[in-house]
Simulated scan of single mutants.
Amino acid sequence: MDGLFSGKGFSGNIKITQKEFLQLRDIIYELSGIFLNDNRKFLIENRFAPRLSELKLNSYSEYINYLKNHSKGKTEELAMLTELITTNETSFFRDNPQLKVFRNYTLKKMIDEGNKTGRREIKIWSAGCSSGEEPYTLAIILHEALKEDIRKWRIRITANDISTNVLKMAEKGIYTKYSLRTTPIPIISKYFSEKDNNIYQIKPEVKRLIKFGKINLNQDRSVKMVPRSHIVFCRNVIIYFDKDMKRKVLSGFHNNLLDNGHLYVGHSESLHAVTDKFKPRQHAGTITYHKI
């Protein structure tokens, strides 16, 4: 890669033409299923300029050529593309009303049924886990709900994301105080080890419940390899998809979920007029969806 563009200087304020924008948009959609509306040209210019600088490219046409003609570069750039056009703004215990419903309704029902039947198994898929705050939050909630009985249960949280970089952060389980801004202090004391300079590390008993891995929700083969789940969390992900891609992703979730499975999406996301594979249920402060 170093020799492909040698001798070319970078000019800082590169504008993207409409033709280049459409070409790049098509590539992004093909690779990730993320669709950019016409009004996102400024986002591309604003976020991609440093990347073009790193690659010593003078135009978006050169970048598009690089993506199209070099398969190795295409693979490496996929994670970079998605990081540039999405926002990994997250924290532990984000959207507490939704988590309260998960804890007091979905999880309680599963625990009661498991204790009654003796089939004590909980399988959760965190699809679009970003830097790990969501799956770790779910693991902590499981610890809080089951307490010492957690050893009697078979628990697996599958946590996936398209970005290699955020998955590396998630696997380390090390966070700043900012990531814990919505976390109750007793929870921090119980499930994190405090390091120097307000750095916190998740404890091993939480970490062991989770298996991280890379996934592209636009690739059927990858989605089909995810273990079947009782619950799928996919919050603030489908907002980046157009209707066709939403249908595809939601169909994948439907196939993954076991009978009577539960789906949680972001509080600003809705399945209305997108799919009829799930039945919505209204709760105080949030909506959950159930496999039909």
Rank of each mutant, 00 (worst) to 15 (best):
Met1Thr: 09
Met1Gly: 08
Asp2Ala: 12
Gly3Tyr: 13
Phe5Gln: 07
Ser6Ala: 14
Ser11Asn: 10
Ile14Gly: 02
Thr17Met: 10
Thr17Ala: 08
Lys19Arg: 11
Lys19Tyr: 08
Leu24Asn: 00
Asp26Arg: 15
Leu31Gln: 14
Gly33Glu: 00
Ile34Cys: 07
Leu36Asn: 04
Leu36Pro: 08
Asn39Asp: 15
Lys41Thr: 06
Arg47Ile: 07
Arg47Ala: 05
Arg51Pro: 00
Leu57Tyr: 00
Leu57Gln: 01
Tyr60Trp: 06
Ser61Pro: 03
Ser61Leu: 03
Ile64Asp: 02
Asn65His: 14
Gly73Leu: 12
Lys74Trp: 10
Glu76Val: 13
Glu77Thr: 05
Leu81Gly: 02
Ile85Val: 12
Ser91Ile: 09
Ser91Gly: 04
Phe93Glu: 04
Arg94Asp: 14
Arg94Ser: 13
Asn96Ser: 13
Pro97Glu: 01
Pro97Thr: 06
Thr106Gln: 13
Lys109Gly: 06
Asp112Thr: 13
Asn115Trp: 09
Gly118Met: 08
Glu121Asp: 07
Ile122His: 01
Lys123Gly: 01
Ser126Leu: 11
Ala127His: 08
Gly128Pro: 03
Gly128Arg: 01
Ser130Asn: 08
Ser130Glu: 01
Glu133Ala: 04
His143Met: 13
Leu146Gly: 04
Glu148Ser: 15
Ile155Met: 12
Ile157Ala: 06
Asn160Trp: 00
Asp161His: 11
Ser163Lys: 01
Asn165Trp: 12
Asn165Gly: 05
Leu167Ala: 06
Leu167Met: 04
Lys168Gly: 07
Ala170Asn: 04
Glu171Arg: 15
Lys172Met: 12
Gly173Ser: 10
Lys177Pro: 02
Ser179Trp: 03
Arg181Glu: 09
Pro184Asp: 14
Ile185Lys: 15
Ile185Ala: 11
Lys190Asn: 12
Glu194Ser: 05
Lys195Phe: 09
Asn197Ile: 06
Asn197Phe: 15
Ile199Leu: 09
Ile202Glu: 00
Lys203Asp: 02
Glu205Tyr: 07
Lys207Ile: 02
Arg208Ser: 15
Ile210Ser: 03
Lys211Thr: 11
Phe212Tyr: 13
Gly213Trp: 02
Ile215Arg: 07
Ser222Gly: 11
Val223Ala: 02
Lys224Phe: 01
Pro227Gln: 04
Arg228Ser: 10
Ser229Val: 07
Ile231Val: 14
Ile231His: 07
Asn236Met: 07
Ile239Glu: 10
Tyr240Cys: 04
Asp244Lys: 12
Arg247Met: 04
Lys248Ser: 13
Leu250Ala: 03
Gly252Gln: 09
Phe253Arg: 03
Asn256Ala: 12
Leu257Pro: 03
Leu258Ser: 12
Asp259Asn: 11
Tyr264Glu: 03
Glu269His: 07
Ser270Tyr: 01
Lys277Leu: 15
Arg281Trp: 07
Ala284Phe: 08
His290Asn: 07
Lys291Pro: 06
